[in-house]
């Protein structure tokens, strides 16, 4: 195959890639329920490098409610719920609710351009689990999966699949956790 043919083929594939997302974007409405974890246990370790090249350690966030979201740019429900995580962070961040978005298996060159397309663009830490080892420790079985860690460092809630994180009921649920 010549260089020109190769280039044409590449462009055709890139164009077709855009077609994948309309199909995958035909999704059910997002709900806002968080499932309580029946027997809260200590959250697994989470210490990862952020997009800003800083080490973020979950253990240093004791006393706050931490929403830990596992995601990837190619995952349609992850993309869909990302703006609501930022809205949550903007509304509840100063009250003691923080968000850590753990990207699985991708690098900064892939994630950074995507974040520019999110409205509003995330201001909370984006962390990189490049080899998916943290995902495994947290026993995630599908993306997106989100855990809520209480101020005591224990897992309090879990959500499998996309959610509307800025729904008032969900925000109330998180703020109540701060009071416990």
């Amino acid at each position: 195959m010549s260089v020109v043919q190769n280039r044409r083929c590449r462009w055709a594939l890139l164009l077709t890639a855009w077609l994948v997302f309309p199909v995958l974007a035909d999704l059910p409405p997002l709900t806002h329920g968080l499932a309580p974890i029946a027997e809260p246990v200590d959250a697994p370790m989470l210490r990862l490098t952020s997009m800003d090249d800083e080490i973020v350690d979950l253990a240093s966030l004791r006393g706050q409610v931490v929403v830990v979201n596992f995601w990837a740019t190619w995952c349609p429900p992850c993309r869909r719920e990302m703006p609501s995580l930022e809205h949550l962070y903007q509304q509840a961040g100063e009250k003691g609710v923080t968000v850590l978005a753990v990207n699985v298996g991708e690098d900064e060159d892939t994630v950074f351009p995507f974040l520019g397309t999110v409205d509003p663009s995330p201001t909370f830490p984006i962390l990189f689990d490049t080899d998916s080892s943290v995902l495994t420790q947290w026993r995630v079985r599908g993306l997106p999966t989100t855990f809520v860690v209480g101020p005591n460092g224990k897992l309090a809630y879990q959500a499998v699949g996309g959610r509307e994180f800025n729904h008032p009921d969900l925000i109330d649920q998180l703020l109540q956790l701060l009071e416990k």
Binding site: L24, L27, P28, T31, H32, G33, A35, A72, W74, C75, P76, P77, V104, G105, E106, D107, T130, D131, S132, L135, R141, G142, L143, Q158, A159, V160, G161, G162, R163
Partner: peptide, 25 residues
């Protein structure tokens, strides 16, 4: 990265969905 993307883009081999809207795609 390709292996991770492939694995996690697949429907989970086993899963539990809590009542109230847990789901996967």
């Amino acid at each position: 990265s390709a292996r991770i993307a492939f694995r996690w883009a697949q429907f989970p081999p086993e899963q539990e969905y809590q009542p109230g809207g847990d789901w996967n795609q």
